[in-house]
Design a protein around this nucleic acid. Sequence first.
DNA 1: GTGGTCTAGACCACG
DNA 2: GTGGTCTAGACCACC
Lengths: 127, 127, 127, 127
Amino acid sequence: MFITIDPNDRRPIYQQVADAIKSLIARGELSAGTQLPPVRQIAADLAVNLNTIAAAYRELQADGLITVKHGSGAVVAPLNQPQKKPDAEELRKPLRNALTELILAGLPKRAVLKIVVEELGGLTRAK
Amino acid sequence: MFITIDPNDRRPIYQQVADAIKSLIARGELSAGTQLPPVRQIAADLAVNLNTIAAAYRELQADGLITVKHGSGAVVAPLNQPQKKPDAEELRKPLRNALTELILAGLPKRAVLKIVVEELGGLTRAK
Amino acid sequence: MFITIDPNDRRPIYQQVADAIKSLIARGELSAGTQLPPVRQIAADLAVNLNTIAAAYRELQADGLITVKHGSGAVVAPLNQPQKKPDAEELRKPLRNALTELILAGLPKRAVLKIVVEELGGLTRAK
Amino acid sequence: MFITIDPNDRRPIYQQVADAIKSLIARGELSAGTQLPPVRQIAADLAVNLNTIAAAYRELQADGLITVKHGSGAVVAPLNQPQKKPDAEELRKPLRNALTELILAGLPKRAVLKIVVEELGGLTRAK
DNA sequence: GTGGTCTAGACCACG
DNA sequence: GTGGTCTAGACCACC
């Protein structure tokens, strides 16, 4: 469980932690059924407040990515079934914004697509 | 200039406005040299405070996407030259997060790639 | 943390505050890792609005001179690595204007150079 | 009389024009007694509003650098006698700010001093 | 007319 | 308790 937080990142810490765990799940490094470390341990490792990690877990639970069994920690949930159609605006918006930033940074489309393929290559949790 | 703000969106309003304008620029609907609407007009249209839109313009100017001529309005700046290498973590991270969300939503890689290509198709401001 | 604002100064207050803090950092009176005072405290000390100081902090963060940890305060960031070449016009222009003012005030070059050396002597945050 | 205005420069246009003329005077390219171009001509050359140039001339006059003879244009005034002591805070402040920016940009003191000497070399109007 | 700054005061997000 | 955002409304600087 290697998670790092970047003080220069504009996202709040709890969000960075949640995103990092999401990334680990999507890459298959944390598979369904795996026990997540206790909140206290992550908090200690990252030297951040306990509530911050709790907020991250809360977000993961709200997304249905983990199930928290009171008293016995959290475990990674099985893969989501696609509930939302791929046309859902709320699904596309973050992607569109990310792509827009790259284009406005001056990258040609081919370079952007190349990056997408590279990044997608590391994500194993697809059907 | 159709911009909408979504109260359910977690991003602050000024950020939503800035992103919307970035999107318009990236799509070529606002081309270099085009005059942007006055801050007051956008504020009135969206029924938000003048300062909120001013904050959006401030961000756009900081990103070098518009040039604000005090006294006359703001105009879209010419396309950025790529200054950062496509390997820059800070450039890839938002994209990685967006892709991760789609994968965790249960979409197969092929569907994700299809969405990317679709979205990228609309962005014209590339070489 | 002694900061004063000068109503006769044409720069906006938030800029004066930002510049004052930059000066403190450059002099080594605020070293990397040091916690900055809360926005509210500086605002109270200077008898200005909270938002004005917040704008100063925003500028300092944009310049990479401080890192703002939402919820805990702001701390001085480590020294920037030189990213821009010393030939950059945008870097030289403010200096050129300042020197021009001194020359036009009737000071001989030697006196100007003397002042430069004096001022530079106080700035400790250099290699 | 080559003057250029930079839309990305944060200073207002009238200030850029005034600074440019100050620079020409300090470099000796405009010597005492020289007739300045009519406001209308500069305005036309730079494609800016006439009032903008008038504001620049007003600032130059306030600084005692030009004398405006009603109806017969403006001429460069003779060199100022040093009226203010070189310790005057208001004289040093702009210089200090410029030096601070360079130091915070990561330049070592020697490099800063080198730039100062280079820039000072072009300024001829000293005793 | 344009954008920029500032105030007073409220509410929210974060740790 | 920290900074961030937003509002309503005022005044200023610039063109």
